[in-house]
Design a binder for these strands. Sequence first.
DNA 1: CTTATTTGGGACATCAATGTCCCATTCAGG
DNA 2: CCTGAATGGGACATTGATGTCCCAAATAAG
Lengths: 198, 198
Amino acid sequence: MSTTEIPESGTRGRTRRAILAAAASVLARDHGATLADIAEAADVGRSTLHRYFPDRQELMKAVVEDSLEVLGRSVAEAQLEDGPPLEAMRRLIAAMVGAGDRILFLWGDPRVLAEYGPRADDGCEDGALPVDDPVLRLIERGQAEGAFDPDVAPAWIQQVLWALVFTGYENADKGLIPRHGVTPTVVRTFENGIRHRT
Amino acid sequence: MSTTEIPESGTRGRTRRAILAAAASVLARDHGATLADIAEAADVGRSTLHRYFPDRQELMKAVVEDSLEVLGRSVAEAQLEDGPPLEAMRRLIAAMVGAGDRILFLWGDPRVLAEYGPRADDGCEDGALPVDDPVLRLIERGQAEGAFDPDVAPAWIQQVLWALVFTGYENADKGLIPRHGVTPTVVRTFENGIRHRT
DNA sequence: CTTATTTGGGACATCAATGTCCCATTCAGG
DNA sequence: CCTGAATGGGACATTGATGTCCCAAATAAG
C-alpha cells in the first residue's frame, strides 16, 4: 500500500477524533442521523466535517474502521489466551462493555458492517472481522477445555455474546440498568441462562 | 372511540395486508428503505401504496400496529398461563420465532417502537407494549415457582428473550443456521447459557 | 508579534425521496 | 356481459439532505 499514513498533527488529529467519536455516538442511536446532526454533536461546523470526510460514505467507512480499532484494542488488552476460559470470557465482556457507543454503532445496524466493513469492497464478505478471530479462538478453547457448551456452534456463541453485550449496554443507556450493573448481569446471563440453579 | 372499523372488503383487505407484510419484511432488513422499495416488494404501484397510506408516517404506524397484533396473537396462542413455566417459555419462543419478519422489524430499530408505538402520541412511553404484559407475568410466575433465576429483574430476562430470538431469527435469515434449528438453539442458550453442564 | 493553519457559516447547485394529481387500463363482482 | 372499483404509471411540485465554494474570523505555531 502506498497510502501515506500521516501522523495526524495535534489539532487536526483532535478534531478528527472528536468527529469520529460523535459520529459513533449519534449514529448508534439514530442510524439515519444527518451530517448536520453529527457535526453539531461534534461541536464542529458542517463544512469542517466535510473537510475531513468528503462525503457520507467516507465518514461511515472511517467510523467503522475507528470503532473496530478501538474495540480491537479493548479485546487485545483482555488477553484472551491467558487463564481459564470462563475468566477470559468475563474479561472480554467487560472489555466490550467498556468500548461503549462503538458497540452500539457496530452492532446496531447489520448493514454498516456489510457495506462499510473491512472488506466491503471485495465481494467476499462473511462478517469475518479482525475482532472476531481471537474471540472465536477463545470460544473454541473453552469448548475444548470443557468450560463452554460443546454442542452449539462457536459462531452462535459469539453471536449471543454480542447480542447480550449490546442489549446490556443499551438498557444501561436507557437508564433501565445502572452502568456498573451491566457487566455482571451480562456475565451471569451469558454463563447460566435464565434457569434457576439450586 | 368513534373510529369506524371497516371490515376491509376482500380486495382492499388483501392489498392492504400485502403492503403491510412487504413493508415489515423490507424495513426489517433496511430501516431506510424507500417507499418505492416497499411498493415494489409488495408488487404494487407506488401510487397504490399512497392510496392506502397517505404518507410514510401513517404506513409506519400501521406496520407497527399490525406487527404488534400478529405477534400478540402468536403469544396469546402460546397459552403462557398454563403448565410449567419452562415449557410455557419454550412455547413462547417458538411463537415469537414463528412471527417471522415482524420480530426483526419491531426489534431491529428501537426507534420504531418509540416513535410509532401504541402510545407514541402520549408523552408517557416506557416501551410497555400489550405483548409485554403476559410475557412479564410468565417470567414473574417462573421466578416465583423457582424455575427462573430470581436474582435478576424480570425486565432484563425479557430483554434477553427478545435479543436471543432476534439474533436466532437473523442468523437463520442469513443462512448461518437452518430454519428448524432456531427455536431449539435459542431455547437451549436462553435456559442454560453457554456454560458446559456435566 | 506575525504568519499560516484551521475553522464556522453563508450561498449555492444538485439529487433523491416524497406526496399529489390524473387518466387509461384492468379486474372483481353482480 | 357490464359496471364500478381498484390499479399502475406518468408528470409534477416540494422538500430536505448533500456536497461545493468562498471568505472573514479565530486559533495555533513560529
